[in-house]
Nucleic acid binder design. Sequence first.
DNA 1: CAAATATACATAATTATTTTATGCATAAAA
DNA 2: TTTTATGCATAAAATAATTATGTATATTTG
Lengths: 112, 112
Amino acid sequence: MKSANLYKGSLTTIILKLLNENDKMYGYEITQKVKEITNGELLITEGALYPSLHKLEAEGLLDVEFSKVNNRTRKYYKLTELGTQETVNKLAELEDYIKTMRALVYPKFRLQ
Amino acid sequence: MKSANLYKGSLTTIILKLLNENDKMYGYEITQKVKEITNGELLITEGALYPSLHKLEAEGLLDVEFSKVNNRTRKYYKLTELGTQETVNKLAELEDYIKTMRALVYPKFRLQ
DNA sequence: CAAATATACATAATTATTTTATGCATAAAA
DNA sequence: TTTTATGCATAAAATAATTATGTATATTTG
């Protein structure tokens, strides 16, 4: 997903949140949306994205729906009920992560 | 380092920053300090810590110094000049990461 | 006093995630 | 007509962490 490897482990959170915002999206669209929002800061590779989408689907967090546009196939993903719940969890985990990291790197932000 | 895998990729940043704050530390001390600062939120495993310290030393970011306390050996690490520079980079990367993730998960925080 | 816990380091096997490379296919632009 | 863009997918390799061990000494607890 990029050189700075802090993004490792963040892909699921990103996918779930984008789907929460956009109702339904297809893989390529996700890569472009992330590129756009981050001004090219973060580029999601297909080798990371597609396996991740497949896994989320297998876990029942995403539903799939195909459609053909301009003679090209799109595979749309959308959140299931369970996926929406997991989105909430993942966002909370992100907040915890940020809070904890701030406590570690800015001693003034000590927790407690 | 913990269940929530957002921490993957953050260990180097944590180690470097702690050494920047504390001048010199030994491995076990680092695990305890992280546990303390994060109120037990983040537990660094030895299997992750020691290989990471060895790698940072091999890259010339850390210097090593042994000392014997209460008949037990401690291996103290401290930042080299290069290590201090890298600390600055890692902290900047963390800020970028947080900024980018906020842009992704809170659309109101759009970059640009 | 014996057993458990804490201190202190280290590595190997496994697992998980990502990068890099490759493959297929169609459409649009240069 | 070749390159770039759109669209999916997977396999090999790299990276990083967890889990499981191993060694050794010190301290605490029952």
